[in-house]
Nucleic acid binder design. Structure first.
Lengths: 232, 232
DNA sequence: CCTTGCGGACGGACTCGTCAGTCCATATAC
DNA sequence: GTATATGGACTGACGAGTCCGTCCGCAAGG
């Protein structure tokens, strides 16, 4: 009996989140009137407050739910792939694909950052950190297998993570023009092989720099030149 | 006489933007009360409205101003570099450096997206597009010089652009742990050389895929598996 | 050199709309 | 009949934008 009620309550919460998510996404957090959410659900505003203590809690629950869906989606896409490289490719593709079919979540992520800059770290990064470990392990194994160069794992995971993060936003803001398949290819091409021409005589001088401690360091003097541009 | 007045007005606008920028950044757009801005300037709220017709206009002026500073900073840092590769490195470093010393602008960029999702494209991308052309030219020249592989210019500029965008946000949200010099190195290492081990026998099978039309395409069946996860 | 009058810049009290969250009268279930 | 869920009117806070009385700098006139 209790479980049934609890179950019912959980289902109701889901329904509310389902309705609230696109409204939050469309109007933004501040400009969303919970009365509107209630009306669309054909429910009184008071009822909403029985399920979520504050507007903020309701909103954050929606974000958390969205991030869970993302994780589940990517995990599911990667699960059955054995080849490490295919796992990476599949993960990237699933990530971009998910956000393309669920633009609401992008908006929610933005709204969260905009409204709750008091939170220690955004929900996105909490989930990101929770899942990053598995990807790092994968890369470590690839390095051990000599498939990937011997570079710090952090460097690889960070660069790829940031690249995906940026790509996801750009796709949303500018409207993705390519399919995620082609986009995945583009990303992989550069991340896997780099942009330098390996056969170029000219690039050798450049490539050699890589071995020095501070490869390309003409930035010190630039810094001196650029004073007085500060914003605040 | 007229020009002196106009000048004065312009200087006053600058002062207002100077004061408003950190307040918008700290409290967010919606939660910023223009009365507070006025108070800090020791000025009446009415005076603010003499210089900017609406809160929105004041805010957007602050964003535009910030993006101009960024552009000027990066341009200045790159101007005197002749080697194309150093130009890229210098540009990346300057970009990250600027946002690290001007976190307010990051916040303003987020706030703009969060509040004005009606705008066709965010100020950031307007400026980005305006400046991207010169970078594309640079890459084209590098390809012609065989310094860079013969891949679509768009692919290079997009991937690097998105990577920087994502890195900038991540630095801000998580608090950059590394210096931008080291970060620039990390980014360049991967973007220039890729992560694959060029000497690996195992990676050859993988590298070969690159030449096929659709390199790694196990994504079709995944898509079928993942139904019912949609957010909305 | 002082006085008076004028035009534009300024301040900040005020208005008005908007919501988050509450609370109690009512409906429904048992 | 009691207990619990529900609706939606209501309250209180907040803040954008307005509006009018005031102040200041300057010019002409005494």
């Amino acid at each position: 009996m209790i479980s049934k009620n609890t179950d019912l309550k959980a289902r109701r919460r889901e329904e509310i989140l389902n309705m609230a998510t696109p409204i939050f996404a469309e109007r933004g957090y501040q400009r969303t009137d919970l009365q509107v959410v209630a009306d669309r659900l054909k429910v009184g505003k008071g009822t909403l407050y029985r399920y979520f203590p504050t507007k903020r809690a309701l909103f954050l629950a929606a974000v958390r739910r969205g991030m869970h869906c993302l994780t589940a989606y990517v995990d599911g896409a990667v699960k059955d792939l054995s080849d490490p490289l295919e796992q990476i490719a599949g993960g990237i593709r699933a990530y971009l694909e998910f956000f393309q079919t669920n633009p609401s979540l992008v908006e929610l992520i933005i709204q969260e950052r905009a409204e709750f800059n008091d939170r220690s770290r955004p929900t996105y990064f909490e989930h990101r950190d929770a899942n990053m470990g598995r990807w790092k392990d994968l890369i470590r194994r690839m390095i051990a297998a000599k498939q990937v160069r011997d570079i710090p794992v952090e460097r690889v995971s960070e660069v790829i993570g940031n690249l995906l993060y940026g790509t996801m936003f750009t796709n949303y803001f500018l409207g993705a023009t390519k399919s995620h398949d082609m986009q995945t290819e583009d990303i992989l091409d550069i991340v896997l092989h780099g942009i330098l021409n390996p056969e170029s005589g000219g690039s050798e001088a450049v490539t050699k720099r890589k071995s020095t401690k501070r490869p390309i360091s003409s930035g010190r003097k630039i810094k001196e030149k650029m004073r007085g541009l500060s914003l605040e």
